[in-house]
Every structure is written in structure tokens, then in C-alpha cells.
Design a protein around this nucleic acid. Structure first.
Lengths: 157, 157
DNA sequence: GGTGAAACTTCTAATAA
DNA sequence: TTATTAGAAGTTTCACC
């Protein structure tokens, strides 16, 4: 666990909510100087705690309305890394985990529609070492909130 | 599908990679003026295509090393919305979908360790209407790249 | 470490094309 | 719709606590 103090945590909290919050604003809120905010952010960037920033985009408006989770079964566990490397080549697979339990690998895909999704799933099925896949289509993305966790990062359950 | 043109797409592409890229930089790359970038970004914010921005944080460094996916089985489908509303109250559930297939609801949790995860899973199990849950622990997050999709948003398969 | 102020860069909004 | 421009705002550096 990186050693960051309470000020750092508060800075993170603000920037997680909105990356573009001016340092001068943050400084005012936390009663420190903008220079201090700047130095601390820079340090967290250097230490890798802050990995980058990204826009939150409305995929639906861009025509990407289809989300599914796909469990992947392998013929042999030893093929895991190979299959992962092949999955990385498929666009629209946005998340993939090696998991315990039912599946060997577990992915999330985002596609335009069912036809598009079918193509992606077929690509997955065709990877050497994949015995079969199991698809769970999302009917509604009820929670998807990076901020949810992040605001709670330092809160106990 | 929102009507955005090629310039908009290119602006999105840059900002998705790094929200803090100066508009003057983007302007140079695309051979347009910074004012134009500004106007276009503003429009995309107003239309909701740009929903916000967030820091990408290294959770591992913050002590959150445990990721699991949890499939939730309900006693009756009619309880779905109620259960979702209860799940929303649980911190550390970062994603939840209503799905077809095996499970009724499908969540992702991020926790500090197994003890912490156990508490979260027990909270889920205790929700009225939940008959049981099935946990898949992530051994490795091999792909988690918002940028992966985003850069490909306008690419065909 | 933190501050405050100066120097520099970027943003924004209004105007003009 | 896009470009220009000037004033406002934000960032960064640095000498000094």
C-alpha cells in the first residue's frame, strides 16, 4: 500500500469525480496552496497511483448498445495465457479476467447490436484451446460507477 | 446515434486517451483552431456524449487487490428492481447488470482482501429475494482497457 | 515538506469572416 | 460553422519559510 496521506486522498477524491477540477479550486477546498496540490498530484503520477485520466463517454449515443459477459471454458488450463493473448487481439473485448470457479476466463464485450456481438463471440469461440463459451446478455446496466468505489476507497465496510 | 462528425471523433479519441490534453494541442494535431475544439467539446458535453471525466487510479497501490464477479440468483424475477436498489447501497459493488442466462443479476466487486470480500458477499446473500450467489474470483485482470474499445469505437470488426 | 507571487500557458467568449 | 483575438483563468516554478 502506497503511503499517501489524508490530503492526497482528498485530492484524489476530487479528481476522480472530475479530472478537470482546477488545482486552485481544490486548494481552496482543502485550505492549501495550488502549488501544494500540484506537487502532490505530480508525486502520485510519478508513483503510479494516478495512472491517467479518461473521458466518460455515453456509448449508447455512439451506437454501442449491447453489453454481454462471456464465460470461456478451456480445454486445458495451460492454454490460459495463450488464449488471453489472442483475446487481446479482439476489439470490443473491454475486460478479461482469469478466474476461479465455473469459467477459466471471463470477459466483457461491448458491441453495436446482436449481429455485431455474434461476430465477436464467434471470434472467441474460434480461438485454439477454447472448448466453449457461455454468454450472459446484459438487459440493463444498473450500476456502473467508478466513482462509487473510488469515493469509498478509504471507507470501511 | 448522435450525429457527430469525423473531427468530433478525433477530438474524443484524444481526450479519451488523456482528458487533460490542452485544446491547443488537439487543435494543432487536427489543423483546426483551439476555439473550434472548445465549441465542439462543449456541444458534446451538452448533448451528453461526454458524460464526464475521471482519474484512472491504481487500486492495487491503494490496497484494493481483490476483484470478484458474483452471479446472483433470485427467488422471483419480479424482485429484480428491489434487489438492485439494495445492491446499490453496498459500497464496493462497482458494476451490476440485469442479465439473461444463468444469473438474474451479475455484479463486480472490488475489495481489499478475502475477509473484506466475504463481508460484501454476505451482504449480497442477505438481501431479501436473493436465493443464492455464485462467486468467481479474479486471479488476474488481464485486460481492463476503456481505451481499447474507445479507440475502436468507430472501427468495424 | 509548504507558501505566495511572478511568469507562463491555456481557456473562453465575443466578434468577425 | 470556423477563425481570431483579447481578457480571464489555471498551472508551474522558485525563492523563501
Amino acid at each position: 500500500m502506497a503511503r499517501i496521506d489524508d490530503i492526497d486522498k482528498q485530492i484524489l477524491d476530487v479528481l476522480i469525480e472530475n479530472t478537470r477540477t482546477p488545482f486552485t479550486d481544490i486548494a481552496k477546498r482543502l485550505n492549501i496552496s495550488a502549488g501544494t496540490v500540484h506537487v502532490r498530484v505530480k508525486k502520485m503520477e510519478e508513483s503510479g497511483i494516478i495512472k491517467g485520466s479518461s473521458l466518460t463517454v455515453d456509448y449508447e449515443q455512439l451506437g454501442y448498445t449491447f453489453i454481454a459477459y462471456i464465460g470461456v471454458f478451456l480445454e486445458k488450463t495451460s492454454q490460459t495465457q495463450f488464449v488471453i493473448s489472442r483475446i487481446k487481439e479482439i476489439p470490443f473485448v473491454t475486460v478479461a479476467h482469469i478466474t476461479t470457479g465455473k469459467f477459466n476466463i471471463f470477459c466483457k464485450i461491448r458491441a453495436q447490436d446482436t449481429t455485431h456481438a455474434k461476430k465477436i463471440i464467434f471470434l472467441l469461440d474460434d480461438i485454439e484451446g477454447v472448448s466453449r463459451t457461455e454468454t450472459m446478455i446484459s438487459l440493463e446496466e444498473s450500476i456502473n460507477d467508478k466513482k462509487r468505489l473510488l469515493h469509498k476507497v478509504f471507507q470501511d465496510l
